[in-house]
């Protein structure tokens, strides 16, 4: 479903005199349908950078990121922007750590517009499953608690039915009961054949969902 070959990524900070920060070097990864790979490594090692590169949110400096999109392998590290938009719409889902709220748009709408059929019923059902009560559905999530926002974000990420999902700390702000629900959703997605790459800080969550670990080691500072 997803294949990464020799991925390189560095940040060049022009405002700091062109300081160069290498983050990823020679990263290889293959993820099959129904498999969950957890990225491990200390904070600052580049786990989030790798995940964002897989989503083409960050631009790779070298290497390929092949995504199975509608039966063909597309290198989204080299694809034109319009292709990336289509791959994200149909194939590649991403749940960030924080919900980027749109002013004035209610929680239910935020989730429903990510559904392929824009179904409000499905959105409501998924929000209920994640313990977001009906009285909150009509409200914009700007005033929600961190955990509630994260669950709206998860509903938005899971409702799309993408064959590949990237999860950045999906249970970080959740209590144990809600984390269990998310683990169940991840397990069900795997059973449907969804390929998952995630960062799971919580070791218990990681052990319960991940089939394999990919260790991301910090690179030596080269400045």
């Amino acid at each position: 479903m997803l294949q990464v070959d020799s991925l390189e990524k560095q940040f060049t900070l022009h405002l700091r005199g062109g300081l160069s920060l290498p983050v990823l070097h020679g990263v290889n990864l293959t993820v099959h349908a129904g498999e969950c790979v957890a990225l491990s490594g200390p904070s600052g090692a580049g786990k989030s950078t790798l995940l964002r590169s897989l989503y083409a949110n960050y631009r790779a400096d070298a290497g390929r990121i092949l995504i199975r999109h509608e039966g063909e392998m597309v290198d989204i590290a080299a694809a034109p922007p319009r292709t990336v938009v289509q791959v994200r719409a149909k194939t590649l889902g991403y749940v960030s750590q924080f919900l980027r709220v749109v002013p004035r748009v209610p929680a239910l709408e935020i989730v429903a517009e990510a559904a392929p059929d824009r179904s409000q019923e499905k959105a409501a059902a998924l929000l209920h499953r994640l313990n977001i009560p009906t009285r909150l559905h009509a409200l914009p999530p700007a005033t929600f608690s961190g955990g509630e926002q994260q669950r709206v974000n998860l509903a938005r990420g899971f409702i799309g039915g993408h064959p590949i999902l990237l999860l950045d700390e999906p249970t970080a702000s959740l209590d144990a009961a809600n984390a269990d629900i998310v683990i169940a959703m991840i397990t069900e997605a795997k059973a449907r054949g969804v390929a998952i790459v995630g960062i799971f800080h919580d070791a218990e969550v990681r052990n319960r969902v991940a089939d394999r670990l990919l260790h991301v080691a910090p690179l030596q500072d080269a400045a």
Binding site: T12, H14, L15, Y58, V84
Partner: peptide
């Protein structure tokens, strides 16, 4: 030039980095 989130989250040009920061 590029995808909106790419340019804003991973700006490459010095001027874009200045704007974003």
């Amino acid at each position: 030039t590029g995808l909106t989130d790419q340019v804003l989250d991973d700006p490459q040009h010095a001027y874009t980095q200045l704007l974003v920061s």
